[in-house]
Design a protein around this nucleic acid. Structure first.
Lengths: 155, 155
DNA sequence: CCTTCATCGTGATGCCTCCTCACTATGTGT
DNA sequence: ACACATAGTGAGGAGGCATCACGATGAAGG
C-alpha cells in the first residue's frame, strides 16, 4: 500500500506537469499565431516531410475531419500548402512553407533555451536517472496503448 | 552544446508524455461523462471543499466566464450544485454532490492502478531519483511563472 | 470494360474549452 | 451617499474534436 501511495504521488506530479506545460505552451505558441494542435502538425511535418492528410491524422491521433480544419487554418496563415499527390489523385500532400521553416526554427531555439532552463544545474547523475525513468514510463505508456483504460477489467 | 542537446531530448520526451497522457485521460474520463476540464474542477473541489466560482477560476487558471460554463455542465449532469454564499450575496459556492463523490472515488481507484502500472517493477533507487527530478523540474516551472515565455528577453 | 468495395478529403452538425466585452447585483471605503 | 471594486452571466467569437453522409478516385475481379 505504501508503495502505491508513493506511486500515486508521483502520478499527481506528472499530472501537474502536464497542466503547467500545456498552459505555458499555449501562451507561447500564440505569439507565433499558432495553437498547440497546429504546432504539433507542423512539428510532425517537419520531421517526416510532406504527408497526406490521412497520415497526419494518424500521427496526431485525431480524425481525418479534424485535419481538414487544422490544415485549413495553417494554409490561411501561410504555414503549409496543399499539393496534389503525384500518383493518387484522391489525396493531397501537406507541405511546409518557408514561413513555417522560419517559425519552427525559432520554436526550436526557444525549446532549447527552455530545456536548458529546466535542467541547468541539475547534477548529471540525477538528470540521467530522471531521463531513464521518463523513458521507462513512456515505454509502458506506449506499449499498453490506452493504458489509462483500466475500469473494464476492474470490478 | 552537448549538454543542451541532451536536455532537449529530455524535453521532447516530456512533451510526448504530455500528449499521450492527455489523450488517454480524455478517453478514460469520457466513460464517466466527464471531460478533462470538468474533472479538473471536481478534483480541485474535492481537495479544497466548496469554493466560489472566482476561486475555482484561479485554481484552474481560466477566466471566470469559463467557469460559469463548466459549472453549468456539471450542474446539468448532477456532479455539483450552486449554493448561495453565506455572507456574500454576490457569490455562489460550488459544492460536491454524492454522485460526484462516487465518481471521484472511482477515478481515484483508477488512478492508483494506473500509477502502479506505470511504476511497478521500477527499482526503488531509480524511482526515487525520478521523482526527485520531477519535483525539481516542477519547482522551476512554478517559480518562473510562464517559463516557456522566453522570446521577450531573447534577441 | 465494368461492377464492387475500399479509401481520401470534406460539408453539415454538434459539443466542449476558452476569451473579451458589457452589464447587473452586490460589497466597501470615505 | 457616492465612487469604486468584485461576483457572476449574456453575447459573440475562435478553435479543437467527433460522427455521419457523400462525391471522387483507386484497386481487384469477372
Amino acid at each position: 500500500m505504501k508503495v502505491i501511495d508513493r506511486h500515486e504521488a508521483a502520478l499527481d506530479r506528472i499530472l501537474e506537469l502536464v497542466v503547467l506545460l500545456n498552459h505555458d505552451m499555449t501562451q507561447s505558441l500564440a505569439r507565433d499565431g499558432l495553437t498547440v494542435s497546429r504546432a504539433h502538425l507542423l512539428w510532425e511535418l517537419r520531421h517526416r516531410g510532406p504527408m497526406t492528410q490521412r497520415d497526419v491524422a494518424e500521427a496526431l491521433k485525431v480524425s481525418a475531419r479534424t485535419i481538414t480544419g487544422l490544415v485549413d487554418g495553417l494554409v490561411a496563415t501561410g504555414f503549409v500548402t496543399r499539393e496534389p499527390h503525384p500518383t493518387d489523385r484522391r489525396a493531397t500532400l501537406v507541405t511546409f512553407t518557408e514561413h513555417a521553416a522560419t517559425t519552427v526554427a525559432a520554436m526550436e531555439r526557444d525549446q532549447q533555451k527552455f530545456a536548458h532552463l529546466l535542467f541547468a544545474g541539475m547534477p548529471d547523475e540525477q538528470f540521467d536517472c530522471f531521463v531513464a525513468g521518463l523513458g521507462d514510463v513512456l515505454t509502458r505508456l506506449r506499449d499498453q496503448g490506452l493504458s489509462y483504460e483500466i475500469r473494464e477489467d476492474d470490478q
